[in-house]
Write a protein that binds this DNA or RNA. Sequence first.
DNA 1: TGCATCATGTAATCAGTTACATGATTTT
DNA 2: AAAATCATGTAACTGATTACATGATGCA
Lengths: 203, 203
Amino acid sequence: MALEHAILVSLLEKPGSGYELARRFERSIGYFWTATHQQIYRVLKRMELEGVLSVREVPQQGRPDKKEYSVADPGRAVLSRWLHEPIEPESLRHDLAVKIRGTAFDDPSALIGEVERHQQIHRDRLTRYLTGELRDFTGPDAPAPLDAGQELQHVVLRGGIAFERMTIAWLDDVLATLHTLGATTAPRHDPQDSPPGPSGPSV
Amino acid sequence: MALEHAILVSLLEKPGSGYELARRFERSIGYFWTATHQQIYRVLKRMELEGVLSVREVPQQGRPDKKEYSVADPGRAVLSRWLHEPIEPESLRHDLAVKIRGTAFDDPSALIGEVERHQQIHRDRLTRYLTGELRDFTGPDAPAPLDAGQELQHVVLRGGIAFERMTIAWLDDVLATLHTLGATTAPRHDPQDSPPGPSGPSV
DNA sequence: TGCATCATGTAATCAGTTACATGATTTT
DNA sequence: AAAATCATGTAACTGATTACATGATGCA
């Protein structure tokens, strides 16, 4: 369970409320992690009970009060211990890859739109990441010498950028493959002819 | 939930037992999906009750009997429906990225060994994938004209290969970053001054 | 003798998602 | 007047992991 540790890192970078954490998880940390606010609130409560976080009620005007969480000393120890433990490399789960293989038993051209949609989403993400990189790390308004924390944030962001670029290129490859299959296995698009049915395209 | 659909695809490619599925999930389909045998048995049972799979008891000699599952007609319909639905692009979770950012609050050099370990695992995976590609798709013993299913398997495998290559390169970037940080922020760790260098054998 | 492989499962727990719920303020 | 934003939460459910359990065969 690394959500706990992701929260510790984020709160060490800057204390904040559950709501703020949820928004950060859609951005910076979110390059490599996601969590819904429900999940975050639950974990925050547990961590507070365990004594790894401390809370400060912050009254606000014109807005609901918020609970600002920050990392208590035991929390630093928890994070430090985790940092020194080995972890398992992630095994990724990619639903789209399952769909691609499933297409062997269905009409390949039906997947093209979906793949293009995914590719566009990844292009948009890449643009956001590059904009963020320019703003925070490589642009003229970025801090001149980056400190250690910023260098580390930057290298993580570069990972996100590399991932999106790789994915976009791969989806080009997928599209090319789907097109060649559509050209060779689906010339019988005739409405009266039975579409690729239960037996699938047996080549 | 795509485990159900991953099972449908795998069983359409070839019927098999829960045990066999679990092993396939460590291989081919496993480039983009993983599941433990416990999870698989549970889902298989549910899918059988729902009527999307059919079972055949296969007695074996010298081995426990096995239940060979195959996809029933309603299962094909379930898969086909899913293939035509849009799905959300995955948001990846990468614990190592959390660790990298967490290193801002710890000794950067402590993470180097862990990153190198991960990189080696990715190198090993890449080697496995490339061996499999040669054996099944591009080598002299591979079937001459690949059918649609094989072309799709190949493009998914190319995705796995691209992912591993990207990851290995990124971890090089991470290591270089950690080394420069180690050189600037952790000289107070050295008992005596050791040869400085961007990627020297420090600490 | 002990370990690995084949084969199946239960029980308990943990993690994560979806739906529901409230209520003020600010923006369109 | 409606929608979005800020802010917090509960309840129910689904998905996934870990630990435990059995029992045969074959190999070193």
